[in-house]
């Protein structure tokens, strides 16, 4: 198809042909990802956990705040998982249905993870790409801000935030939003510095493409592979982070709950012969985290630029 008469004629004929669909790097990556069995299995598990969080409540007659007075005195003996009284996962220490509470906790924990990752993707990528691309003094100032925020002990700030203002899920999101994008900004900046010196960026500058457009069309799409991988690994990190806060008793407020709060409660009751209180939330926590890590690994393999 390189030059020559016949090629030109072929080109003329081909002009009337339907355009061929190209395979983008994204499509290549998708194919590679779906060849990774662990990643696909993890994805299935994650979808199931998501469905559980979204529709699990419809399966049970109990709500997450209703107390089953019939069991209250005899939780260790009769509060375990059972089909008869429709407490699938048993009840917690105050006689509330654990299944409904796990459904609700899953919602909160997944939301915290996803909101944290989203903030980091949006803010961190934009921050890092702008700092890296513009460079010079802007870069110095923007990255020093990141350094400054990183050097503040965030757990201390978060605890202060939650104590001074009301303890609420909103405050928790703000706290997570404040710290989650810092690492991402550094990663995005580093990646931008290497992309910015590629010839296709120079070609765009020489053509007269404006700076915001270069960042949006040339820099960010090429960053996205790394960003996505890091974001999937950030989701479990955020869930752990929230669990830790809740474990300290500073996270979500009763009657709402999260995996961390449930695990905390279960751990407190370990000596009361009620293993289900720890087991069910912990199982969800561990399985979901594993799934996220496997997906992150799978994505990294699939999107690795060295494979290009």
């Amino acid at each position: 198809m390189l030059a020559g008469r016949p090629a030109v004629e072929a080109a003329e004929q081909a002009a009337h042909m339907e355009p061929v669909k190209g395979r983008s790097l994204w499509q290549d990556a998708r194919t590679r990802f779906f060849h990774n069995k662990a990643a696909v299995a993890s994805m299935v598990i994650l979808v199931l956990v998501g469905l559980f969080a979204a529709f699990g409540q419809f399966v049970t007659p109990w709500s997450n705040e209703e107390i089953d007075w019939a069991l209250l005195g005899s939780i260790p003996e009769q509060g375990g998982p059972s089909w008869e009284n429709r407490h699938y996962f048993g009840v917690d220490e105050t006689g509330r249905d654990l299944y409904a509470r796990v459904v609700q906790g899953t919602r909160i924990s997944l939301m915290v993870g996803i909101v944290g990752a989203l903030i980091s993707v949006v803010v961190g990528t934009a921050w890092g790409a702008i700092a890296g691309y513009v460079g010079g003094r802007v870069d110095t100032i923007m990255m020093r801000i990141v350094d400054l925020m990183m050097s503040i002990p965030y757990m201390f700030v978060l605890i202060l935030l939650l104590v001074v203002f009301e303890r609420s899920i909103f405050m928790l999101f703000i706290g997570i939003g404040l710290i989650s994008w810092l690492d991402m900004a550094r990663i995005a900046r580093g990646q931008t510095l290497s992309i910015k010196n590629k010839e296709f960026v120079e070609a765009a500058i020489a053509t007269g493409v404006s700076t915001p457009r270069i960042i949006a069309r040339h820099i960010v799409p090429n960053l996205l592979g790394v960003v996505i991988v890091y974001a999937t690994l950030l989701v479990p990190q955020m869930i752990i982070f929230e669990s830790f806060i809740s474990f300290l008793g500073l996270g979500v407020q009763e009657p709402s709950t999260s995996w961390g709060a449930l695990i905390n409660m279960g751990a407190d009751n370990m000596r009361n012969q009620t293993p289900w209180m720890l087991g069910f939330p912990l199982a969800f926590f561990v399985v979901t985290l594993f799934a996220f890590f496997f997906i992150g690994d799978g994505l990294r393999d699939a999107l690795d630029p060295k494979d290009r």
Binding site: L2, A7, A11, P19, R23, A203, T207
Partner: peptide
Amino acid sequence: ERVGLLPNLVNRYPHEFSGGQCQRIGIAR
């Protein structure tokens, strides 16, 4: 067409082309 590329390849990506073809794309641009 002018630089000797098949016009039906518009939806392809650069990594699907040889060096000479890539240079033709650069010339077309």
